[in-house]
Design a protein around this nucleic acid. Structure first.
Length: 909
RNA sequence: GCCUUGGUGGUGGAAUGGUAGACACGAGGGACUUAAAAUCCCUUGGCCCGAAGGGGCUGUACGGGUUCGAGUCCCGUCCGAGGCACCA
């Protein structure tokens, strides 16, 4: 009987769906395990063979954990709000909901064919009002909270209001607060709300008609669409992510994530510990204190000038009348530049003198104050002290404008470039002279604090997240404007559903699409017209999976306390500084308010590598319709042309399929080598334009889902990026056929009840041990190798006692075939609910072991010893060896260490 | 420039500091077959010796080091991938 994968796979997929095999409920009698995939954005192109890589890996892990007795939550859903559907809507008039629905159905179809063990009853879609109700709810909670630095967590805003009206807070006294109008109170509270509205410089993308977050912009272009992005001041909703900077940073230490990913987040958060120092600046006879931030107070004796950011509010007050025109012109010039231009002009140095002078608080020395775009307004205080001798940027500036360069580290050479390293001995630095740089940094900080010149200060690079998008296809803000004051919609009126509109473009007066909606009001007042960004819906979806149908809460306390947090999260590294920061922030916020019980959402994270495409080429002789094979192409003048990889097998072109591929090639002629047309190849991104997209459906058609699953894992380590090459797939397909033949030979069912031999038990148990270890380490490719080896060792074994556990071992990788064989073995319950076979060490232990003995790397002997021999007995045996093994020169063997199955380690004295 | 990674046959890739190249693909040879498919067996890092069984040398980007022993650990160099980049 043959292995008919098509029948088997569709049979079991139907059965799993009909019987709800993967439905999961909270079961306190079993330990829980939560395995999550980053849910996909359902794009119009459908899945290619690279997308399911992570899904397969997590599915194998889920199935393995289930066999091990865990109650596994393994859900799937769709990140369905987003720009592509809206762009498509603008072009075609098709409602994004329609496109999204269509794409989602297609995704589901493709996913189902691969045999994933998702509990689809728990599916979530971010564009579903029942889902985004909770996104809006969380926003309202953030609007209604502030970050209390004393308690180091988010608290209800009412506590702040209470404090403002009684004792005051920061610069707001009770008098100010109590006499403030409603509008003024609203403005004051915006300074502390976690979700707040504020004027900021934003990344404005004209091409998309919306603002973008920093991680949605790359090299001055939008990630989606590649349109230019410029800086623009706008009033925007923002999330006070920066309040959580320290906790986001410190929480990383407790996470089981890759070092590189943690490092990316650390860089993004960008903690730097330094000192704020006050310089008095004299301008036209007036003195203004200016606070600067530096991480190198130790270099303060080397300050030769100061620099302000062009956008700094101080520029006006610190510019002398004589220099006003020049400074104004410069600032205006800089404002005009887009982010993109600033980036590309990184190398050029520009700036202008303000006419004012700062007084070095330590030396009393007067230094000129300049304005330059190399100082950023958004970081630190927007003003710096410049130490050209020990900072490369200050150095470049000093060189350009002929400012003095004063070295303060002994023996350093600053004739060509600055000396930035934190090493050496201090000089020209008063009380710091003679100290080591690292010592001096601390000493200078202490001195500044002790003498009231400055104080220690920690800065973070992490900025608040801009949360408004001038788009249609996103969550509406549950905010309306009562007398122009942003006011929250009542919680009981959530979800605030997206209104229907006639066109998806920006309205004629530049307002977002929602402004087109008829009656977009609440209690008679206008509603907010921007919508939330893509990361809003994906920030807490893992919580919703725990309790997806709850209409009373995002997640019930019981469900949350049972599932706690995601134990294993699998997804791409591209979300390192976006989704993975926002989710952690969102979760910590909900944790502060007591809605969830875990402070970190994703305990362990595996980044699956990208699958690249492997393109094929044909070579057309210039000016003809004749194609020459790869090996002969250098004899002609040819053009390289991408050819669809689906009509190429093992780099050999299917000539008939090629002629049929495109009308132009119908009468193509070929110059062959050895009767075949050999194609060239290259590794490129998998994309339609390269004709290298491989569809998982096609693989399922010709080899089956089980083969696809095995092959994707067999390609190499999950974390590694690698090109897809269908050529090796026969190997794993053969393995499955071979596996099948252990149960069915030419004459049919051939499983016997014979007792297994010792060798067979050994092969089985070696595999059990290997699989357990490998799966826990996500080393799936070596598990599959181990399977192949085990099959070789088992030979023609048709014994039930071996085949039964073997089937269970195979189940996580190739569930369909495992189910089919499990059923044939007489089981009525699904193989996915079987119990994982127990590893028995005794079966794999060898009686006698041959130990190779190596000495001085050259002489090699072997001793055969019983497995149970003690090191002393082995040593004795080694001493029986020829004399040269025991003595080399004056050295003698004093100790022998036995490493079972390996080599003997001889320690000599 | 900084940070994080990685560099092993024709290819994908294995190797707790202990016989490098497992497993698979591809290639070559053979068996079965009228033939093909399917299946099975043998060879397969390079160089060399031997009629053969077999044996020798060399080899994990490059140069050093630690070690009885290094693909693996340490230092330096080169190359690739990813991230950050006037963040004071």
């Amino acid at each position: 009987m043959e292995y008919k994968f098509k029948e088997i796979e569709s049979k079991w997929q139907k059965k799993w769906a009909a019987e709800g095999t993967y439905k999961v409920t909270e079961d306190p009698s079993k330990p829980k395990y939560y395995v999550l995939d980053m849910f996909p954005y359902p794009s119009g192109a459908g899945l290619h063979v690279g997308h399911p890589l992570g899904y397969i890996a997590s599915d194998i892990y889920s199935r393995y954990k289930r066999l091990k007795g865990f109650n596994v939550l393994h859900p799937m859903g769709y990140d369905a709000f987003g720009l592509p559907a809206e762009q498509y809507a603008i072009q075609t008039g098709q409602h994004p909901e329609v496109t999204t629905e269509k794409n989602t159905a297609r995704y589901r179809e493709q996913l189902d064919r691969i045999g994933f063990s998702y509990d689809w009853d728990r599916e979530v879609r971010t564009c579903d009002p029942a889902y985004y109700k909770w996104t809006q709810w969380a926003f309202l909670k953030m609007f209604d909270s502030w970050y209390d630095p004393a308690k180091n967590c988010a608290r209800p805003i009412s506590e702040l209001v209470e404090r403002l009206s009684t004792e005051g807070y920061e610069d707001i006294t009770p008098q100010i607060w109590n006499s403030a109008s409603e509008k003024e109170k609203s403005d004051i509270l915006m300074r502390w709300r976690i979700a707040y509205q504020g004027e900021t410089s934003v990344n404005w993308c004209e091409g998309l008609g919306t603002v973008l977050a920093n991680d949605e912009v790359k090299d001055g272009l939008s990630v989606r669409g590649g349109f230019p992005v410029e800086q623009k001041k706008m009033k925007q909703w923002q999330l006070r992510v920066s309040a959580y900077a320290e906790r986001l940073l410190e929480g990383l230490d407790r996470l089981d994530w890759s070092d590189s990913l943690k490092e990316m987040q650390r860089n993004w958060i960008g903690k730097s510990e330094g000192t704020e120092v006050v310089f008095n600046v004299e301008c036209d006879g007036k003195t203004t204190p200016v606070t600067i931030f530096t991480t190198r107070v130790d270099t303060i004796f080397g300050v030769t000038f100061m620099v302000l950011a062009p956008e700094s509010e101080l520029v006006g007050t610190l510019t002398s009348a004589a220099h006003k025109d020049e400074v104004d012109a410069y600032v205006k010039e800089v404002r005009k530049k887009t982010e993109r231009e600033r980036i590309s002009e990184t190398k050029s140095v520009s700036g202008v003198f303000t006419g004012s002078y700062g007084i070095n608080p330590l030396t009393g020395e007067k230094v000129p104050v300049w304005v330059s775009e190399y100082v950023l307004a958004g970081y630190g205080t927007g003003a710096i002290m410049a130490v050209p001798a020990h900072d490369s940027r200050d150095y470049a500036f000093a060189k350009k404008f002929n400012l003095p360069i004063v070295p303060i580290i002994e023996g350093c050479d600053v004739s060509e470039s600055s000396f930035d390293a934190k090493e050496g001995k201090m000089c020209n630095s008063g009380f710091l002279d003679g100290m080591d740089v690292k010592q001096a940094i601390e000493a200078a900080k202490d001195y500044a604090e002790a003498n009231g010149i400055g104080h220690r200060k920690t800065n973070y690079r992490l900025r608040d997240a801009i949360f408004s998008r001038q788009r249609y296809w996103g969550e509406p803000f549950p905010i309306y404007y009562k007398d122009g004051i942003p006011t929250p919609v009542d919680e009981k009126d959530l979800p605030l559903a997206l209104p229907e509109i006639d066109s998806f473009t920006v309205s004629s007066n530049g307002e977002p699409p929602l402004a087109r909606a008829k009656d977009w009001t609440y209690k008679g007042w206008p509603l907010e017209t921007s919508t939330m960004p893509g990361f809003a819906g994906s920030s807490a979806y893992y919580l919703r999976y725990m309790d997806p149908h709850n209409s009373e809460a995002l997640v019930s306390r019981e469900a949350d306390e049972y599932w706690k947090s995601v134990d294993l999260y699998v997804g791409g590294t591209e979300h390192a500084t976006g989704h993975l920061i926002y989710s952690r922030f969102w979760n910590k916020f909900l944790y502060d308010l007591g809605y969830v019980c875990c402070d970190e959402p994703f305990k362990k994270l595996i980044n699956q590598g990208m699958i690249q495409g492997r393109s094929n080429f044909v070579y057309r002789i210039v000016g003809t319709n004749t194609f020459v094979s790869y090996g002969l192409k250098d004899k002609y003048e040819t053009t390289e042309i991408h050819v669809d990889v689906n009509i190429v097998h093992n780099d050999r072109l299917d000539l008939e399929a090629f002629k049929a591929w495109r009308p132009d090639y119908a009468d193509a002629e070929f110059v062959l080598e050895d009767g075949e047309y050999v194609c060239g190849w290259a590794v490129e991104k998998m994309s339609k334009s390269m004709y290298n997209v491989v569809n998982p459906d096609d693989i399922c058609d010709s080899y089956g889902a089980d083969t696809l699953r095995l092959y994707e894992m067999f390609l190499g380590p999950v974390e590694q990026s690698k090109p897809w090459d269908t050529k090796g797939i026969d190997g794993v397909n053969r393995f499955l056929k071979k596996f099948w033949r252990l149960f069915y030979d030419r004459d049919g069912w051939c499983v016997t009840d014979q007792e297994p031999t010792k060798a067979e038990l050994k092969a089985l148990h070696k595999l059990i041990a290997k699989e357990q270890e490998d799966i826990e380490n996500f080393s799936y490719n070596t598990t599959i190798s181990a399977f192949m080896i085990a099959l070789g060792e088992l030979g023609d074994c048709h014994k039930r006692a071996i085949l039964e556990p073997l089937t269970v071992l195979l189940c996580p990788f190739a569930p369909h075939i495992a189910e089919e064989l499990w059923e044939a073995l007489g089981h009525t319950q699904s193989c996915t609910k079987a119990t994982y076979p127990e590893y028995v060490e005794a079966y794999t232990v060898e009686d006698n072991v041959t130990y190779p003995v190596q000495f001085n790397g050259k002489m090699r002997f072997t001793v055969e010893m019983p497995k149970a021999a003690t090191p002393a007995e082995v040593e004795a045996a080694v001493r029986q060896l020829p004399k040269t093994a025991q003595y080399v020169g004056e050295q003698s063997i004093v100790k022998v260490i036995v490493v079972p199955g390996r080599i003997i380690n001889i320690v000599v004295k």
